[in-house]
């Protein structure tokens, strides 16, 4: 129990999941430094990436927590899952739209680069977060189901594993989006 946790126990439990997370994030870093850095529009693209990673964390983290909770308390059903999925997609589309608008404003006021038109600045975060969630939602739901059915607590396992998968897929889907849109 958490009450008696010694520093040794904290290290033993937290370090392995942190290691998984590091590997996923290094893979995200590879995509960033090898595939996204060479783009001419890199100064504008790098503006959006931390916001998208934050958005991904704030969407899939609670999605996983709600799904785990529903499994644990026995409330998981097709209806609760669809509600959860719809809320997550709606939040992602609205917030991605704001990221695009604010990126445009920052470019207009601070950077004055004007490499990408406003439509691209809105479409890039929207398409990449939708693609990311389309990978993340089925993966995390499946993982939640497997972990729960094996009698383990999904809260302790699913989130760190999904952080690694999600951070990589966010950056990779971002890369796919800019390729699809033909961003310079």
């Amino acid at each position: 129990m958490e009450i008696q946790d010694s520093k040794g126990k904290i290290v033993k439990e937290a370090f392995p999941s942190e290691l998984i997370s590091i590997i996923g994030d290094i893979l995200a870093g590879i995509v960033l430094s090898l595939l996204i850095l060479p783009f001419d529009s890199f100064p504008v693209l790098i503006l959006m990436i931390p916001a998208l990673l934050s958005l991904r964390g704030n969407l899939s983290g609670p999605f996983i927590a709600r799904t785990s909770r529903d499994f644990i308390i026995g409330h998981f059903s097709r209806r609760t899952w669809i509600e959860n999925v719809l809320a997550t997609y709606t939040l992602s589309i609205i917030t991605a739209f704001f990221i695009g608008i604010f990126s445009f404003i920052l470019d207009l006021i601070l950077f004055k680069l004007f490499i990408l038109p406003i439509l691209y600045l809105i479409l890039i975060p929207m398409i990449s977060i939708i693609l990311t969630l389309t990978i993340s939602i089925p993966c995390s739901t499946g993982l939640n189901y497997l972990v729960f059915n094996r009698g383990l607590n999904p809260n302790n396992i699913v989130n760190p594993v999904m952080t690694a998968i999600d951070d990589f897929s966010t950056v990779f889907c971002f890369f796919l989006t800019i390729i699809m849109l033909g961003v310079p």
Partner: peptide, 9 residues
């Protein structure tokens, strides 16, 4: 939090 992310960007 996405706005914070943009500041970081």
């Amino acid at each position: 939090s996405s706005l914070f992310g943009l500041i970081s960007g």
